[in-house]
Design a protein around this nucleic acid. Structure first.
Length: 479
RNA sequence: GGCGACAUAGCCAAGCGGUAAGGCAGGGGUCUGCAAAACCCUCAUCCCCGGUUCGAUUCCGGGUGUCGCCUCCA
């Protein structure tokens, strides 16, 4: 079997990946803070985590994948300043934080579904694990890593000399407080909140040894990761922006309790850029999966776009690029399904792949196992489409799709959607019939005129040896 | 100001010591009344300048440029 190699942020090296328990992998993915709609930038991170999970499973490993939903405690600033994001959205939308969380969680899960991201094994909500978090904060306090201030309980970074091991940051070189005023009660500028004492207006608050309050964002992940995966698990994933603060803090918290940095492998996805720069609200380019659909781009075309770039490289999102991805995906499916007539299909299904197809499968496996080189994996599949595999190509594609999840065997084949004849308005049917007669009479002029007319009405006609085919034209917005 | 990443054809991008994967777009062709689809062919010497090497897009140094983090964010 081809060995799996992953880039580990902790060591900055590609390393052989071997699960600590044979055959089983425990992984934790930092989930969304459900205070607004997730952008396609967020979704890239979850597509990545999904590809990682699927690749492990493709290798025959059983994956226990845990993801959190942060529905409390994520403040506006990671420096523990500002308000809880949930509270701000609640005020803005005149709803309770609970309603906010429920709504955005639902939309998020729906988006992941449309992107063919498999449901995780354990989806855990921060608000449902408060006791575990309190226990961990208490443990840190008992071990001398935490101290109480007037507004909360903080982690004392000076007690954890390894702090910075992930981001390789030298705290003494950082200009903490250069831009934001540091809480004067903090012993060290980079100390972070484990527990925040809640002001009366904060709706989400719980009883604790330090009074009413709510957990810090970082302790949420540490506590839940530990609860579901143990003191030391295999992989922890997240966005590259989490390296310096969130994951550094997670490592500090867990290691202070267990002596181990939570996960053996830390894997991080790069950012998705939009038009060469960061997406931002002020530029109005924070797109969601729904925005893509509104422009006629199917969610899976975005997934295809993500797969076309390596996860550790920045990916530049442009409308031209997704449109290209959409066309490429259609073409790939067409190539795969070309020979998938039902009878032939039944013929090949379940049969072992031929020597030729197995070679492609091996190349594909090698690509994804090499630190998830999905661009290379896609190239292998494209190569296979024109290598004369015949109907067996479909079986190969099905197999690859266990990782890619692009609906290769059943997805849409083009921008136009076929319509059943019965759904056509009478006048359209009349035009079609007239055109058909015109063609039989070799009256090309009249036939083409009708085709144009139908196009104006939103219907496409294609002539095939077996007759004509009608489609509803849903061309993507050309922007 | 401090730290870091990246720079490959019109676009999205692999490769990272032995003379550049793949997709989209473009050009040419086969087929079809035309169109669509399909198929075939075609389309780059890798930001600049030095250095190391038999040999560099791939390593080192210096430029230039872009992006990011330090402040919210996957």
């Amino acid at each position: 079997m081809t060995g799996i190699r992953f880039f580990n942020t902790l060591t900055r090296n590609k390393e052989d990946f071997v699960p600590q328990s044979p055959g089983r992998v425990g992984m934790y993915t930092c989930g969304p803070t459900v205070y607004e709609y997730a952008s396609i930038g967020n979704m890239r991170a979850y597509v990545f985590a999904d590809i990682l999970r699927r690749t492990l499973e493709y290798n025959g490993l059983e994956v226990n994948m845990v993801m959190n939903i942060t529905d409390v405690g994520h403040l506006v600033s990671d420096a523990d300043e500002g308000e809880d994001k949930m509270m701000i959205s609640a005020r803005r939308e005149r709803k309770t934080p609970w309603e906010i969380a429920r709504h955005y969680t639902e939309v998020f899960l729906d988006d992941t579904k449309r992107l063919n991201i498999r449901p995780v094994t354990v989806l855990c909500y921060a608000t449902q694990h408060i006791p575990e978090m309190i226990a961990m904060v208490q443990e840190l306090a008992d071990r001398g890593y935490a101290y109480e201030t007037s507004d909360g309980v903080y982690f004392d970074i000076s007690k954890f000399p390894e702090y910075g091991c992930l981001s390789r940051i030298n705290l003494s070189e950082q200009k903490a407080g250069a831009r934001v005023e540091v809480n004067p009660e903090k012993r060290n500028p980079a100390d972070f909140a484990l527990w925040k004492k809640a002001p009366a207006e904060h709706i989400m608050q719980w009883e604790s040894p330090w009074g009413m309050g709510y957990p810090g964002w970082h302790i949420e992940c540490s506590a839940m990761g530990r609860q579901y995966l143990g003191d030391q698990f295999d992989i922890h994933t997240g966005g590259i922006d989490h390296i310096p603060v969130h994951h550094e803090n997670e490592i500090a918290q867990t290691a202070a309790c267990t002596g181990q940095p939570a996960a053996r492998f830390w894997m991080h996805v790069e950012f998705l850029l939009v038009d060469g720069g960061k997406m931002s609200k002020s530029l109005g380019n924070v797109y969601t999966v729904s925005d893509l659909e509104a422009r006629g781009i199917e969610p899976l075309a975005f997934r295809y776009l993500c797969l076309g770039a390596h996860y550790r490289a920045k990916l530049n999102f442009t409308w031209e690029a997704v449109a290209g991805a959409q066309k490429g995906l259609f073409a790939l499916r067409r190539a795969v399904q070309k020979d998938s007539k039902e009878d032939r299909l039944r013929d090949v299904q379940g049969r072992a792949l031929s020597h030729n197809a197995l070679r492609f499968r091996e190349d594909f496996l090698q690509a994804v196992n090499d630190d998830l080189n999905t661009p290379q994996a896609l190239a292998v599949l494209w190569e296979a489409t024109r290598s004369g595999l015949g109907s067996e190509l479909l079986e190969l594609a099905r197999d690859c799709d266990r990782v890619l999840a692009l609906d290769l065997a059943k997805g849409r084949l083009g921008p136009d959607v076929d319509i059943a004849a019965g759904d056509l308005p009478d006048y359209v049917r009349a035009l079609l019939e007239e055109r058909h007669q015109a063609r039989l009479a070799r009256n090309w002029k009249r036939a083409d005129a009708i085709r144009d007319e139908l196009a104006g009405l939103g219907y496409g006609v294609k002539d095939t040896p077996g007759g004509y085919q009608v489609t509803r034209i849903v061309t993507p917005d050309s922007h």
